[in-house]
Design a protein around this nucleic acid. Structure first.
Length: 898
DNA sequence: CCCCACCCGTAC
DNA sequence: GACGTACGGGTGGGGT
């Protein structure tokens, strides 16, 4: 009977067969690597197994055993032992080191014995542990270990959750555990080159062992073996059988240099584990780690020197010139294009970090006159040969531009560099990067609120804020080299150097220039829409029979579905949906006046609240709107725009176009618009090398008609409107990973016909199908997708167990190379355009980028030249298998330029 | 008064 | 869930 006395805590020794699991994990998990290209499949499988075993098995003591020159001893018995094992695969070799690191951070005690296998180490520890009264659990998937099973010694296979004890062995194999050695010797092991006795398989082996007990008895009583064939075989292979049994027998008497007390389990080193898992990109496993205790505060610098006199600023400028490298974090308030520079945190490769107070408001604080700062620093800041670092160099560029300084030499923008390494990441905030990359907590910046509670930044004394900014500069400077190493390793460095960093000052210039808004014109539209919205709201109330908040979806749902008893066609997370698709159906198919009225109300109030009411308030004193472009925001490499977002100004509806009429050129100027035609579809043709699609673009056909002709088996001239509409939808959806369901709801056709259309599309455009499949397959294998120019997006969710998540990731993987390459092309076009404008000495400026469109403001005299220049630059930015078509137009307003 | 999730809608 | 990438407004619930 088991000891049930409560006084004695269970002492369980867990023994882990590391070597066995490494190979199992390697073969069980498809090739996988980090974004840096480090192979990790075996490490991941091994780590998962390890964590699972520790999670599921009670353990007071733990040891992990590795092979060490493991063939030496057994090859003394048989030189061919394991001789036909294939060499370790090249992508497994480098993973051993990381496995050791995992074991190390988990604080597991490694036990190994030179010349012996992990099997023997575990056999020895199991025997000693059992003798000392431990309960033993052996974590392994190897059947050889059955031989050490006994009362109190069990096997656990974390890959299938199987526990093997004495009873299980008897049931599964029909033998006692101690007979396993004899059993294995009889049936042999081809993989390890352990000879078998020919003609004997598992069945016969079990029979023989049941009758005779072990190999010695069997051989001594050979004449009792009934079947002559078996008897002869045993007689003929007597020697090899005994040798085989020697080979498979664990040595449980190794002189291990470890005491059982040394194996006491210790908590993992959570912080180091976190770092290692982050490095290996085992993000799902991070959750399994114990949370970190209080964040460790590691001040990066001990001293911040305050630069408060003109001489000191001059000395600083000299130091920057000597170092050839400076990292700057500005303290400012307001929007960057029109902000006051309050101070500057500065870090140099050598020496203390500095803070230069410029516009602190407190009386009597020592600070530098802004003019003195500018005159001293301008030469070094404008010198492209002096490398600049920071976090969001575009903001710095804008701030310095306001001071009359044109920042050049920007290179180490850690936000931008971090983005290129992982564009899916939501934020690249400096404190987060410092925590991850430097294991340092940045001090909080002073609370700055414009409201009643906080004070403006300038109201804080320099010594309150200076160190915080200086430390940030120090942190940014220190993480830059490693970022570049990672970029080099991922082949992203040239993208950073030749595309993103040169684009940065161009974006700054666009933001600074802004686009003129005709506020009175907008006000006219607004007044008209205002009364329309009110009328529509009244119509909604009338249709409902009472007043309610038309803008409230819950209230609307109540009216539609509870009061009017209309059918619920779609549900969201929190209730029945009231989106446009649903309302259209309710209006058309159920004759709902209210639904129709809501649709009209919605479209107008959207325009009113988002654009008409908002845009005028964002007009700066110069009468222009200064958006902010985000270069480190999207997962595909596109830019985004905010405050306001000028990339979603309406264009499709009449009222929407009127809003574009309020975006105007200065007197004597025109807006010039140049946009890529069908750029994503053209890129799809090029990247997928689809002959049909390429042919269509080479002949500049109406691509939707051509697709309709292909899909419906008619000539392009025979295509009717409906067929073209279907084809157009397919063309748009194809790069988004469209589904029969999605297409059917969008087209209002059945899922079957949608499926049929898609199938016929892929039959005609076989290259596209192949490309889409290959893209997903490769993404699964390498863990990322990339554009023609090497921009990468990490794609972890492809392996999600949640099917929906995995499928969404597949669609994203399909889309990214297309959307991302289009973004790359546009960025290169912007560089080319800016260069050409300067070369030709034109005064035209680039104002806006809307993914596939560039908007310029050109003096009247330059309009035609700019139209030609833009078309030329944009279409010649890459030589593809299809031409890049560019449409250009010009006019007084954005609407007129189209 | 701020923050957030949610729904919805605008762009490409 | 249901076709990719964004930003942002309103509501309504929660918190300070």
């Amino acid at each position: 009977m088991a000891d049930t006395s409560p006084q004695r805590p269970a002492r369980t020794l867990v023994l882990i067969d590391a070597s066995g699991f490494i190979f199992r994990a390697y073969h069980a998990i498809p090739p996988l690597s980090t974004s840096k290209g480090v192979p990790t499949n075996a490490v991941l499988g091994f780590t998962r197994m390890l964590l699972k075993a520790l999670r599921e098995l009670p353990h007071s003591h733990v040891a992990i055993a590795f092979d060490k020159d493991s063939r030496v001893e057994r090859q003394k018995i048989d030189p061919t032992y394991k001789a036909n094992r294939e060499a370790t695969p090249p992508d497994l070799l480098p993973q051993f080191e990381h496995i050791r690191r995992v074991v190390d951070v988990l604080n597991l005690r490694v036990v190994e014995a030179s010349g012996w296998e992990a099997d023997d180490v575990i056999g020895t520890l199991a025997r000693r542990g059992r003798e000392a009264g431990f309960d033993i659990k052996v974590v392994t998937g190897d059947k050889d270990f059955v031989q050490i099973v006994q009362d109190g010694v069990r096997l656990f296979d974390p890959m299938n959750d199987r526990i093997t004890d004495t009873a299980a062995v008897k049931e599964r194999l029909g033998i006692e555990p101690r007979q396993m050695r004899d059993y294995l010797a009889l049936i042999g092991d081809a993989v390890d080159n352990v000879a078998k006795v020919p003609g004997i398989g598992p069945k016969t082996a079990t029979e023989l062992l049941t009758q005779f007990g072990d190999v010695e008895t069997l051989l001594s009583r050979l004449d009792e073996v009934k079947k002559p064939k078996i008897r002869e075989a045993l007689g003929a292979h007597r020697e090899s059988l005994l040798r085989a049994r020697q080979l498979v027998t664990f040595n449980t008497e190794l002189p291990l240099d470890v005491a059982l007390d040394d194996l006491v389990w210790r908590e993992p080193d959570a912080r180091r584990a976190r770092d290692l898992f982050t490095e290996l990109e085992f993000f799902a496993l991070l959750r399994d780690l114990p949370q970190e205790e209080a964040p460790q505060v590691a001040p990066l610098v001990t001293t911040t020197t305050f630069v408060t006199t003109e001489d000191e600023v001059k000395a600083l400028a000299d130091a920057v010139r000597v170092a050839g490298d400076v990292t700057l974090i500005p303290a400012f308030e307001g929007m960057p294009f029109a902000a006051a520079l309050v101070g500057m945190g500065v870090s140099l490769p050598e020496g203390a970090t500095r803070y230069v107070p410029l516009r602190h408001q407190q009386l009597g604080v020592a600070q530098v006159r802004p003019e003195a700062f500018v005159s001293a620093m301008k030469p070094v800041l404008e010198d492209a040969a002096i490398k600049k670092g920071g976090h969001d160099l575009k903001a710095l560029t804008l701030l310095l531009a306001t001071e009359g300084i044109a920042l050049r030499g920007g290179q180490d923008d850690v936000e931008l560099l971090s983005y290129l390494l992982n564009p899916s990441r939501r934020e690249h905030a400096l404190p987060d990067l410092a925590r991850e990359r430097l294991r340092a907590e940045l001090p909080a910046l002073p609370a700055v609120t414009e409201g009643r509670k906080g004070r403006a930044l300038a109201d804080h004394a320099p010594d309150e804020v200076g160190a915080a900014y200086a430390v940030r500069a120090d942190a940014a400077r220190r993480m830059a080299p490693e970022l570049w190493r990672e970029l080099e390793a991922a082949n992203l460095a040239s993208l950073a150097r030749s595309m993103e960093l040169p684009l940065l000052p161009i974006l700054a210039k666009m933001e600074r220039r802004g686009v003129k808004l005709d506020v009175p014109e907008l006000a006219l539209i607004s007044a008209r829409v205002d009364s329309e919205v009110t009328a529509r709201e009244k119509a909604c109330h009338a249709a409902a029979g009472h007043e309610f908040n038309v803008g409230s979806n819950p209230q609307l749902a109540q009216v539609l579905y509870e009061e009017k008893k209309l059918p619920i066609l779609k549900r969201g997370k929190t209730g029945p949906s009231t989106d446009q698709e649903v309302l259209e159906k309710l209006a058309d198919e159920h004759g709902s006046e209210l639904a129709r009225a809501i649709i009209e109300y919605r479209s107008l109030s959207k325009l009113k609240s988002t654009y008409l009411d908002t845009l005028p308030s964002l007009v700066a004193r110069d009468g222009r709107i200064h958006t902010t472009y985000h270069q480190a925001a999207t997962a595909t490499g596109r830019l985004s725009s905010s405050d306001p977002n000028l990339q979603n100004i309406p264009v499709r509806t009449e009222v929407g176009r009127e809003i574009r009429r309020a975006f105007v050129a200065e007197p004597g100027h025109q807006l010039v618009s140049a946009d890529y035609s069908q750029v994503e579809l053209r890129l799809l043709a090029h990247i997928a090398e689809d002959p049909v699609l390429i042919d269509a673009f080479l002949h500049d056909e109406d691509i939707h008609s051509r697709t309709a002709a292909e899909v419906f088996g008619v000539t392009p001239a025979q295509v009717d409107r409906e067929q073209r509409r279907v084809a157009k939808m397919v063309n748009f959806g194809i790069a988004y990973g469209l589904s029969p369901h999605g297409l059917s709801t969008r087209l209002g056709i059945s899922q079957e016909s949608a499926r049929d259309v898609i199938e016929r599309y892929f039959t005609r455009y076989a290259g596209i199908r192949r490309y889409l499949l290959e893209t997903v397959e490769k993404a699964r294998k390498v863990g990322y997708v990339e554009t023609l120019y090497g921009r990468r997006r990490l794609m972890g969710d492809l392996h999600s167990k949640n099917r929906g998540v995995a499928q969404a990731a597949e669609r994203a993987a399909i889309n990214m190379p297309i959307q991302g390459t289009a973004a790359d092309l546009m960025k290169m076009a912007m560089l080319a355009v800016e260069d050409a404008l300067r070369q030709e000495g034109l005064r035209t400026t680039l104002l806006l980028q809307v993914h596939d469109e560039l908007l310029f403001e050109a003096p009247d005299a330059e309009v035609e030249a700019v139209k030609a220049l833009a078309a030329r630059c944009m279409s010649s930015v890459a030589q593809l298998k299809v031409p890049l078509k560019v449409d250009v137009g010009a006019g007084r307003s954005w609407a007129d330029a189209h």
